[in-house]
Design a protein around this nucleic acid. Structure first.
Lengths: 341, 341
DNA sequence: GGCGATTTCGTAAACGTTTCCGAAAATCTT
DNA sequence: AAGATTTTCGGAAACGTTTACGAAATCGCC
């Protein structure tokens, strides 16, 4: 069923049918209704290739996702929650959202180059940004609109939305400092992700601001998930001058932390204050509930799609937005045990 | 950069350039080399819309993924591991893999209808099949090739690959039975998924086969993830005639099970034997290690892509394949405590 | 060197749309 | 009622490819 058949069925020219479907004004309202009715009853949808060839745009947004080991992160899938809302919002604006998985064996920059050359999308959404991100460097020289979920060293040159890691570190360290903590560990993801960069910067800056001695040993690189949390906790408990608090950049680490503490008959709180970045309902059975920062992922998805649509309309200024996180304080943070004695 | 510019740059006709790029035979090898070299050096990739309009095929496989609450499952993302390998394999065959997210607010069948009408892909891969799956019913009446990751009541009419839930139930129940267990609980996911259907069938069949009394109360519907595991364990521990073993259909439940057992100063083993379907390295810090079935997700991804390519070549017969799972036995399964007394 | 067979290339049509342009029909104006 | 305006529609070109077809060039053979 193409537009030609539809036109023949209606005894109209294909030009008129097309204008009727696209809400152009030089078509009689009665015939427009006839056309629209026939289109739905015959299940007609314009062929994507034909349309985009003629229009020069695909009405498609591509969400690039690097798969492979880095994706094998435990926890509810962060991206899926975001994508869910993006798809809903974009489809209302008559855009399609497609996720393009990029296998770890191929160069992400080449992958994107091909996507652009083939004209597969009108705009791109990037994730898992590095501090020095070759993809972004390349995209800045192309002229396809793109939006990054995450910053980079080129952050002032492109639109982005990023989570408030600074706020997390700042608020958590500030609160712990007021409670009397002086040695606060913080986990940092491995590799060259921009998140690691931001966390390090924020950690050092906050310490300087509050006048807490900065010990680089307390910035502990560790993998995500329960296993990472378990490993880092064992490491902490074995330290000579052991920290009295730990900040987790990934929520599922809390499971590992609590598990290792339980082995030692310990609980989060005075023995070791624990806070994690993103609150997740998968942690709701932990006792005590863990101090965490709430992030509205659904709203984030909507913001991303709204910004993408703005980008396509060439509206300025471009977003450079820190997405807020809200603190939920619990007894997993407490004054260090020695103050109680 | 389109084929016209490329042809002008080479002082050739676009027809010759196209034939050179597509490995047609009536083109001189020297000019073919010239063309290919120029294409890579100028970064030319044929426009997807133009090509698929002319060819009538998009060289694209669509992987449909329903997002929303059901996707908000904890654990490493099952699909991402599979997709990772699919993308790698398909790209070698010069196919693109795109993931189409479908928001929970829209009807999946209508969503697919539109995808087909617009000609967005040459073949579809379905996931999260229901027993009575309206999408499959519709697709059977269309003529687009599709492959289901999961069975349905229409399983004999379409190609599918599914995990070996029957083997899981059969082996686990069999082994527990030999150890002396007579009341074995098994979790079943909520909603109308075909997995729930298969698990129930297998559970009942195995019990009948072994002559163990079948108690429907032991088929416990519960949500995925740690929380589901915690809830079901509390439920089990509170039962009058409490089961001595529990089979988990989702690996991350084990975390909740172990956590609740630890609260009662219990461990998996004699007090409650625990086995879970899919082994995950996110569970590797559990003590004792949990009995689980290993599934090679990477190979599964490759099998899915291979089968999809077969489908496109119209090769028969179509796959109807139970994907094997391999048992890893640990001390989380033991003879029930009363036999030790 | 001439003729047929083969190799190599250019031309043009086609895929399904959208959109520009002009013609026909309807409506309005005086 | 006739001219001017507006509304409504059909025709045709264009988007970037691929491919069928035929023409030109090269080759082989006597």
């Amino acid at each position: 069923m193409n537009i030609k058949e539809l036109a023949q069925h209606l005894d109209l020219s294909i030009g008129t049918v097309s204008r009727a479907l696209n809400n152009k004004r030089d078509v009689n309202e009665k015939t427009r209704k006839r056309v629209l009715d026939a289109a739905v009853s015959l299940g007609y949808s314009p062929n994507a290739s034909g349309r985009s060839l003629r229009r020069g745009s695909t009405q498609t947004i591509a969400f690039m996702m690097e798969t492979g080991h880095s994706t094998d992160r435990p926890g509810d899938n962060f991206f899926m929650r975001v994508i869910d809302q993006m798809q809903a919002a974009l489809s209302e604006a008559n855009y399609d959202l497609v996720i393009l998985p990029c296998h770890s064996s191929m160069d992400p920059t080449d992958f994107l180059k091909r996507v652009i050359a083939r004209g597969m999308a009108d705009a791109l959404v990037l994730t898992a940004t590095r501090h020095d991100d070759a993809r972004i460097k390349m995209l800045l020289e192309s002229n396809i609109p793109f939006l990054a979920l995450g910053r980079s060293k080129y952050a002032d040159q492109h639109p982005w939305i990023d989570l408030d890691f600074e706020g997390f570190i700042d608020e958590a360290v500030g609160m712990l400092h007021r409670l009397g903590h002086t040695r606060i560990a913080a986990t940092v993801p491995p590799a060259d992700s921009n998140i690691a960069y931001v966390l390090r910067e924020a950690y050092e800056k906050t310490h300087r601001k509050l006048g807490i001695p900065f010990d680089p040993e307390l910035l502990m690189t560790c993998e995500l998930g329960e296993a990472g949390g378990a490993a880092v906790t064992k490491q902490i408990l074995a330290m000579d001058d052991r920290p009295s608090a730990v900040l987790l950049n990934h929520e599922m680490m809390a499971l590992g932390v609590y598990a290792v503490l339980a082995e030692q008959k310990l609980k989060a709180g005075p023995e070791l204050s624990v806070a994690t970045f993103r609150r997740s309902h998968h942690l709701r059975f932990l006792d005590p509930a863990v101090t965490a920062f709430d992030i509205d992922l659904e709203a984030l998805g909507r913001a991303l799609s709204a910004e993408t649509l703005r980008l396509l309309k060439n509206e300025t200024p471009q977003a450079k937005m820190i997405w807020p996180a809200q603190l939920h304080l619990t007894s997993s943070i407490a004054a260090p045990y020695w103050t109680k004695s």
